[in-house]
Nucleic acid binder design. Sequence first.
DNA 1: CACAATGATTGCTG
DNA 2: CAGCAATCATTGTG
Length: 437
Amino acid sequence: MTECLFRAPPCCPVGSELHCHSQLFIRLHMHPRSITVLPPGPVTSLYQDIGDILQQIMTITDQSLDEAQARKHALNCHRMKPALFNVLCEIKEKTVLSIRGAQEEEPPDPQLMRLDNMLLAEGVAGPEKGGGSAAAAAAAAATGGIGADNSAEHSDYRAKLSQIRQIYHTELEKYEQACNEFTTHVMNLLREQSRTRPISPKEIERMVGIIHRKFSSIQMQLKQSTCEAVMILRSRFLDARRKRRNFNKQATEILNEYFYSHLSNPYPSEEAKEELAKKCGITVSQVSNWFGNKRIRYKKNISKFQEEANMYAARTAVNATSVSAHGSQANSPSTPNSAGSAGSFNMSNSGDLFMSVQSLNGDSYQGGQVGANIQSQVDTLRHVISQTGGYSDSLAASQMYSPQGINTNGGWQDAPTPSSVTSPTEGPGSVHSDTSN
DNA sequence: CACAATGATTGCTG
DNA sequence: CAGCAATCATTGTG
């Protein structure tokens, strides 16, 4: 902390006090303002004199307070003090300049910035938010945060986060207080010392800077450990999310209904996903997950899903007919079960039904929204037909149930419609028509 | 406890 | 970025 300027002039070999002294001596002679105050006398006595003064200054910090005070006073009154002080100032200036050049203008630490940003984003730093932190809200949004079963976890998370926040702030406050106290102390000390040794305000400033840097590095450690704590808390929270819970039966049914009634193109649009999510009480991404899983698992083992497919197909077909029987023409774009043109189906007669499907398929490519509804109705009815034995015996079950659009390469999208089996007249465009929703 | 079912995640692709 | 495929991890069931 205490810089011994006598040891540091860049022109001198390190620790060469003799060099310093002799240099001082020469410079005292050369110094324009010093010349007048130089007393007459033998050079050796002058040298001795200066040497004594320097020795006193150098050892002043080792002395007891009272002793030092007396010495300081004596030094201040010394006849050579002003001259010596000037020279020391000059040397000091040079030293300081060289030091300053080396370590000025460090860029803001990117690590610190990262930590700050994270703490801010997590709601640990920055202004306190009423009720809950931004992070908790964000986390809640990320998990979909529906229902009451998550709220316990959320409040737990919030509580822990605010605990971290509190600790962080108290520690930060402590550090700041300590830093201020220490800075003030050092500044006073330096001001006091500046009377006996050359210390410019800039130097004090620099010292303050050094102290602040030291303290901010401690602060950074605090921030780092706070970040770690938040990360641990977060990961625990997210792990809790990973503890999946099966969707309730109703949600699964809704999803399955949609899936099997859109078997030709089981890719719900964004709006449809949103509506399904709302209906099921899950998030849109959960809907996406579900459809992704369902598609892949259905495709992998179609036969395994036959029964399920038939069940849902039958159910939705019944729904559709009952809806139309009531004369309802209101078609929601995301409720495909309400296919408007299915009105005249006689479900008790599979033969008629088959014919109806044929004609429906024939109509379907005439385009537009009607086609979309019809297509989903066709999807549904195909299963009903297969279940009720509507197809001739010559058709294998796997063909009957095989989803339209699935080819051997997998995927619904590129698959040719198996029109030769189920809908000979089905035209292009009808398969994908419900994506227009 | 083994196994199947199932929701979520990850890596890759177009 | 949506979707696929593989995989992980948990839950449900016999």
